[in-house]
Write a protein that binds this DNA or RNA. Sequence first.
DNA 1: TCAAAAGTGTTCTAGCTACACCCATGG
DNA 2: CCATGGGTGTAGCTAGAACACTTTTGA
Lengths: 216, 216
Amino acid sequence: MLAAVLQIRDETLQVLLWQRAQQPDLGRWALPGGQLGADEDVQSSVLRQLADKVDLREVAHIEQLGVFSEPRRVPGVRLVATGFLGLVPCDADPAVPQDTRWHPVSDLPDTAFDHAAIVRDARDRLRAKLSYTNLGFALAPTEFTVSALRDLYVSALGHPVSATNLQRVLARRGVLVATGETAPPGPSGGRPAALFRFAERQLRVTDASAVLRPPS
Amino acid sequence: MLAAVLQIRDETLQVLLWQRAQQPDLGRWALPGGQLGADEDVQSSVLRQLADKVDLREVAHIEQLGVFSEPRRVPGVRLVATGFLGLVPCDADPAVPQDTRWHPVSDLPDTAFDHAAIVRDARDRLRAKLSYTNLGFALAPTEFTVSALRDLYVSALGHPVSATNLQRVLARRGVLVATGETAPPGPSGGRPAALFRFAERQLRVTDASAVLRPPS
DNA sequence: TCAAAAGTGTTCTAGCTACACCCATGG
DNA sequence: CCATGGGTGTAGCTAGAACACTTTTGA
């Protein structure tokens, strides 16, 4: 099992990597992971690995990316790995061990084995699901303003997003609910922003492809 | 590895299963599959298994569904399986061994282990991808009329589909190309139907979610 | 009174559904 | 000439993008 754990840090989509201290690929950066235990399924296992090995418990969403099984993906041994996408809300600041560090997904260091490809898969999965599910809940804090949420989407998607339209799309789909509270304006003034919350914190598909759907 | 191989047979979505001849789950119906070899990845492996064990070579598309890893999914031993969706065009009629048979997905016999869940996952994946990709190519013969294709979609999706709109959606997306030929009308007359072909026989996403897309 | 930031109203468009209508064939 | 099945034209709907405009705050 290998987990590409993503979080928006400093307006940037980052992934948690640790630096290998032994051969092969000594010094290169690798995804956290480990072996499947006897009495757990792969998902429980990867959550356990993250808690045990990098002391990470704030994972708001995790899902399988697929099996990586190239015969020579790891030199010397035959290793088949199940890759995962994990997401950590941007307000969490987990204390990770010495040898681990967050790296921008768009500017990875030298990575071990095929781990760069797994990170790319994770990023692509996140980008796709942000637009047709409520997956934003896993990146955002519990309460937020629309423009803060917009900034998260911009960082994850890598292209401009209009706060106006983001608000309307998510509201129409019933993904966002207003708390009734407002956030104080910044030092330079401006209207105070309404605070929102995700209606659910479980993955839900909100925009099932409209095409070829059953007649009404 | 386990493969849920689907084909439309007799206007019905069916899956290829073989009947177990030993314990556990003797007599129950199972998905074909086998062990990963030393010098192959999971996808090559599952294609090889299908060719070797059930003499099936007409697989037009195959993709990973995910890892099935419940600790007790197979009694007695710990087995982790990678599930696949395979698709066979409806004009293929592979000669499968004695102990294997096609079964309607909507009316499965007693199935072994968690294989019924894998079949459901395969069906759901197929249904989803039919509407936003060109995946129809893997169910259809090389040449077909729009109404024949419509019938395939109806069987796979389980709800009515308008031939008129199917034609236009797939044509607009550049998925279908006319051959210029026509099929002779049936015994009761009618206008001869134009023959079409899929432009590509590789999976392509044709309807990336329009939402939150980059500004133009 | 002005700048800044948030939020609303309105127009425009793409893509799809629905359905009326026209076309080509067999008997 | 009519029934049958295939194909086209077109109106209407919905979701979203774009953008002008209004609201609420700090200085």
